[in-house]
Design a protein around this nucleic acid. Structure first.
Length: 109
DNA sequence: GTCATGACGGATC
DNA sequence: GGATCCGCCATGA
């Protein structure tokens, strides 16, 4: 299949549930290249509408630049609206909202 | 086929 | 602890 790298990234981003957040490196690893974190960002830059790319953050939980899908403020509002905890530092609390790829792959609760 | 770039990540100063 | 630099990997010209 021509499931190119960015193509996999789109699939992964769509699998991120509300109230959770993932990092570029994480998506890159799930896509097959743990070092291609920048490729993930480049892919999201080309990502079509409907993709919850606002759930993708930096390793530290910081939001990307303003050029991202509209603005950091918008991203923060969207995440807060989904239940993502924010730190007083202005970052996302990845410690408590980091997306677990096993949640939806087949974990039997 | 090769060169340069890019929404990152980690190491170093 | 914060800022800066380099490295990595896939895509585009």
């Amino acid at each position: 299949m021509e499931n190119s790298f960015p193509k996999r990234v789109y699939q992964l981003v769509q699998r991120i549930p509300a109230g959770r957040a993932a990092t570029y490196g994480q998506l890159a690893a799930l896509a097959g290249s743990p070092r291609a974190s920048r490729i993930v960002g480049a892919a999201l830059a080309h990502a079509p509408a409907g993709l919850p790319c606002h759930r993708v953050l930096y390793r530290d939980g910081t939001l990307c630049c303003d050029q991202a899908f509209g603005g950091k403020e918008v991203q923060r509002q969207l995440l807060e609206a989904e239940g993502v905890p924010f730190l007083p530092d202005g970052r996302v609390d990845l410690k408590h909202c980091l997306w677990d790829p096993t949640e939806g792959t087949g974990e039997s609760l």
